[in-house]
Design a protein around this nucleic acid. Structure first.
Length: 277
DNA sequence: CGCCAGGTTGTCG
DNA sequence: CGACAACATGGC
């Protein structure tokens, strides 16, 4: 991997296995939208970024020079995914297929608070509607950055709300969960950053003290917000996949990179619905 | 109309 | 402990 930056544009070449579309469309993030010209625009780290692939290079427009390291880290480009894939492929024949199919996925390093709130909203919900609710949350309670783009709201802002204040985002019964989570963070009853290094089970239990955060949302927060690659979120898709494709294998057998295996299987399953008839 | 969606909570046996 | 309805909302 090598990169060059000039005039607010970062070009990164020779990323071993990588697909921007797979990475942004595999259900791990909700704030990137695809444009007419197949590029993607997203708000990350309070910046509006346009991203696309050209001649096998990743191009990111809208960065300042001091943002470069952050975005290399955001896309997890310093990790050897080829090596991880080779390890995972030996564990199960279906995982081999899934990893080959979804090989361009990178697990993003998203902001922990954004991941927490986003996956609270995801519960008993579908992806298009999750995106819509998060858009409304940002438009109404974030700050305008430029054009029609808004930052993700702060814990302070969300903690100050009453459930009725959130009616406009149409999150329904999740309103009070969002506010409770923001309050835990804002009052420092939980320190999300500290969960990067705590023992996995301990970190998960801590998150689950928040009302509206169960096993699955806790695992998603750990995996997508805190890059705990050993966490393995079990949603309806994954439960079905483990049952039908993996003969009820115990996910802990996937080991330290179970989260990456999970993402491969999730994406593979969603793109091959016919496997579950 | 009923069922489902990257679930969690509260309650009942 | 395990099972199960209820929870808002919108698409099909």
């Amino acid at each position: 991997m090598e990169f060059e930056y000039n005039r607010s544009t970062l070009v990164i070449k020779d990323i071993k296995p990588f697909s921007l579309a797979q990475t942004l469309d595999c259900g791990q993030c909700f704030r990137w939208q695809e444009n007419e010209d197949k590029s993607f625009t997203g708000v990350v780290h309070n910046r509006v970024v346009n991203a696309y692939e050209e001649n096998k290079a990743l191009v990111l427009e809208g960065l300042r020079k001091k943002d470069v390291d952050f975005f290399v880290e955001y896309f997890d480009l310093n990790r050897d995914y080829k090596k991880i894939q080779n390890k995972l492929k030996k564990l199960h024949p279906v995982l081999k297929d899934a990893a080959s199919y979804a090989s361009g996925i990178r697990i993003l390093n998203q902001e922990p608070f954004e991941a927490l709130i986003s996956f609270i909203i995801s519960q008993n919900n579908n992806i298009p509607r999750i995106k819509g609710i998060i858009d409304k949350l940002c438009e109404n309670f974030g700050e305008k950055i430029n054009g029609n783009y808004y930052s993700f709201p702060t814990s302070k802002t969300l903690a100050s709300l009453k459930p009725n204040d959130l009616d406009i985002i149409k999150a329904g019964f999740r309103n009070r969960y969002i506010i409770d989570a923001a309050t835990w963070v804002e009052e420092k009853r939980i320190d999300l950053e500290s969960l990067r290094v705590k023992p996995y089970e301990e970190a998960k239990e801590e998150l689950m003290q928040i009302t509206g955060v169960g096993k699955k949302v806790a695992d998603c927060t750990l995996l997508y917000g805190l890059h705990r690659l050993e966490s393995f979120p079990l949603d309806v898709w994954m439960k079905r996949a483990m049952e039908v494709l993996f003969d009820n294998m115990d996910p802990s057998l996937f080991g330290d990179y179970g989260g990456i295996a999970q993402q491969y299987i999730f994406h593979y399953s969603r793109m091959h619905k016919e496997l579950f008839q």
